[in-house]
Design a binder for these strands. Sequence first.
DNA 1: TCTCAAATGATAATAATTCGCAAAGAGATG
DNA 2: CATCTCTTTGCGAATTATTATCATTTGAGA
Lengths: 147, 147
Amino acid sequence: MAMERLRHLGWAVTPQRLSILRVVADAKDHPRAETVFERVRREHPHISLATVHRTLERLAAAGEVCKVTPLHDSARYDGNSAPHHHVVCVRCREVQDVEVAEFDHHWRGIEQIGEFKVLGVALEVRALCAACQQKTEHARSSRRIAR
Amino acid sequence: MAMERLRHLGWAVTPQRLSILRVVADAKDHPRAETVFERVRREHPHISLATVHRTLERLAAAGEVCKVTPLHDSARYDGNSAPHHHVVCVRCREVQDVEVAEFDHHWRGIEQIGEFKVLGVALEVRALCAACQQKTEHARSSRRIAR
DNA sequence: TCTCAAATGATAATAATTCGCAAAGAGATG
DNA sequence: CATCTCTTTGCGAATTATTATCATTTGAGA
Ligand SMILES: [Mn+2]
Ligand SMILES: [Mn+2]
Ligand SMILES: [Zn+2]
Ligand SMILES: [Zn+2]
């Protein structure tokens, strides 16, 4: 699978690329480059972080993976390159996919906004994950008690 | 105006903060911290870039300005803190406001997605601005001729 | 197998942002 | 106004993510 994808892109098939592609495809957690690096490393202890960055960027440019940029920290990648949307926890930065069918339907066909030629739309839902909701609660109540 | 806003936040009123607040309020171009710095500098030649970063971050946290994070480079700030959406040119990173009434209407009321408690939604339209459309055209045709 | 452009690894460089801390300033109080 | 205290500032160093450089290796076609 990974091999065909590289062939199809007309790129050289290297063990590093195969591994990166597999890691990103298997990941369900929108990993950052560093995380992909750690995972690929288990198979290829000698791989360089730079190679991971380079490869992910090229894959994103080629539309093979989706690059998510949640609330501006490090970029996060998703093996699922089909356009889709994300919820991001504003506290811990966990990223999860969201389906918004009506939304996509609404955008279908819109290809111009003012002077801009529309290429795509990314919806970023800013939210608090379950764990962080609790932590925030705790913080609040202990502050109340403390003072 | 700027003064009342600081008072209302319970923050010390300093000339630096007043100036930053005014610059961001007047800016129509979603400036980055560095740009705000350059503008504030004209009034306060001794201000530090760190102060600008600090202040913008605190203002964003307080909801006084809107922090936009277009395609993951440097953060961009908007004096208009009312929730709204943006088109970003994927080539030159120009940022412009966009109105999507139906969209906002659709989201009104949604406050939970799975385990996540929704705080807000940010729509980022990826696009090409007029200038960059042209440049891309040129690049294409000259490449065609070149070869 | 031979050749060579493409890819990699190691490391340095860059860019944006944050941190640490001493000095200056804001605001409250008498 | 003088004084006290807590906040904010400026500066430089540190951190973090990402990109660039370049010598070396390697895939892929002839
Ligand atoms: Mn995703
Ligand atoms: Mn805006
Ligand atoms: Zn969280
Ligand atoms: Zn542009």
